[in-house]
Design a protein around this nucleic acid. Structure first.
Lengths: 174, 174
DNA sequence: GTAGTGTTACTCGGATAAATATTGTCCGAGTGACATCGG
DNA sequence: CCGATGTCACTCGGACAATATTTATCCGAGTAACACTAC
């Protein structure tokens, strides 16, 4: 019953990416710097999010990551499952069948009651996580956190986000 | 997000101990045999349950383990916390403070919203586990499982439980 | 001045090592049952 | 025959390795920007 440290980093990065505008990106190195993490290791987790379809990555100069869909449609459950794996935490090893008392398989068609109880609890856990949308996290941060923290975060995003080349070659885009 | 394998063993053992009568005990070796587990390793988990006050252990010949209180007052949460540890699965490392943007501590009095959401989910998880009493698990097994499995389990308990010496020396006790 | 082209610097991605936690094993301390011995 | 006593076998408990998982690092593939050259 222990979540990896990468989950925290992944959520923070996703929340930060929710602040970049349009289809701009932010490099993994910038986010690693923002949170004082090892850049190479953070990429590993960001890659997991990309594989899960939560983030999009673009290579090359001015590349980086961006949300693959609006923050309203990303939940904490999505992120946790992407980083920690989709299988449930409690895996019933059916140890009740492993003893010397061997009955035929028909005696074990009923699922183990212990397993059922554990899975029920985990469903509650996941349901609570599915309620928490990334946009809610960001909104709560914007409204209730210390204003200076909010300002600092927004400034960091503004400073490090990289606009992507678009088809329309707007001349006076700084 | 992965529970150790010992949790399953601990719960099964507790459920089996709920079947022993009075203050009789059952040895760890017997339970290890029942589930096909390594005896020495199972003792480690049983010891955790004993430390947590869920089980009582008696040494010497005819020794073993027994529930420290009635099964109605033991929940799956008690067992899971005893084996996996009491601290929450998600530990906020406050990585938001680790970046180069150093604000004074007064800016971080508000708890991290991400941490709050994760802890809320975990509270739901623990609440669901606290609802599941060990007596319910046993009753469900007795009533809804395959009768032959129930019979086999009861026979195993009858065969391996060790009555404790009591003050009253009843002569005709078989 | 403009288009084409080669170089370059920057990005992510996966393969590779170190650190840590979990799982498994072993041996020792303690204790009550049992057999033996004495009354 | 009954009780005291010494031995012993069986129990749990904690210390010690092996394995698996997590964490951290490095180097390579790919790509778009940039500079340069030719027209």
């Amino acid at each position: 019953m222990k979540l990896g440290e990468g989950v925290e980093a992944a959520i923070h990065c996703a929340a930060m990416l929710a602040g970049v505008e349009g289809n701009s990106t932010m490099s993994g190195a910038a986010m690693a710097e923002a949170f004082g993490l090892s850049p190479s290791y953070l990429l590993k987790h960001l890659n997991q999010l990309t594989t899960a379809g939560i983030l999009e990555s673009v290579s090359g100069p001015a590349g980086g990551y961006r949300l693959a869909r609006p923050a309203e449609r990303i939940t904490l459950l999505d992120i946790v499952l992407a980083v920690e794996g989709r299988e449930p935490a409690f895996r019933c090893g059916e140890i009740r069948q492993r003893g010397p008392v061997k009955l035929d398989a028909k005696a074990y068609v009923k699922p183990c009651g212990i397993n059922a109880a554990m899975l029920k609890a985990e469903r509650a856990y996941r349901a609570a996580l599915a309620e928490a949308k990334l946009s809610d996290i960001v909104a709560d941060f914007m409204n209730h956190a210390d204003p200076r923290t909010v300002a600092a975060s927004c400034a960091f995003v503004e400073r490090h986000q990289r606009p992507q080349k678009v088809q329309q070659p707007s001349k006076r885009e700084r």
